[in-house]
């Protein structure tokens, strides 16, 4: 066992983990932050995406010990403390970017990484960015719409929800 400490959604946390403990296990089982999902556990689906030092990664493919000392952000850290959704989360709701919602935490965390790197992505760029995020319900169109709308809102433009 090794002890790890990191910042998760702005809070300092620590815990005991095995070498083989995955970051997603530490988050879900150690910290009871179950918003980060495990869809495939084979690095394909992106349901487990979180940010490590600002970069999106698949938490099912990262060892908890390897991110000792890192700054982690999960879906639980996206809304304001009073529960007000972030612009991106609100856009997913407004544009019906989710149905069952299983893929949504990973979609939101992945898209948030895109928008911090590219404030004005084209539809093509959004679709390419979501290569590692699989959704079995929506057919992706509304997810792409939500992300483009959130980008516009964050740039100060207004796009009507349909």
């Amino acid at each position: 066992m090794a002890s790890v400490s990191m910042t998760v959604n702005g809070k300092a946390v620590s815990g005991e983990v095995e070498g083989r403990t995955l970051l997603v296990e530490f988050l879900r089982e150690g910290l009871e932050l179950t918003g980060t999902h495990v869809g495939c556990d084979t690095s394909q689906c992106g349901a487990c995406v979180v940010h490590v030092n600002g970069e999106s990664v698949k938490a099912c493919s990262v060892l908890a010990v390897a991110v000792d000392g890192a700054d982690i952000r999960t879906i639980e850290g996206m809304a304001a403390p009073d529960g007000t959704l972030s612009v991106l989360q609100q856009a997913f709701q407004d544009h019906h970017g989710l149905q069952c919602g299983f893929c949504t935490p990973g979609m939101v965390m992945s898209a948030a990484d895109l928008l911090q790197k590219n404030a004005d992505p084209s539809e093509q760029e959004v679709r390419e960015w979501l290569e590692g995020n699989i959704c079995r319900c929506t057919g992706y169109h509304n997810i792409v719409k939500a992300i483009l709308a959130a980008a516009a809102t964050l740039r100060g433009e207004k796009i009507a929800a349909e």
Partner: peptide, 9 residues
């Protein structure tokens, strides 16, 4: 290569 998350690691 792969997707953004694979490229980040």
């Amino acid at each position: 290569i792969g997707d953004p998350q694979v490229r980040n690691r």
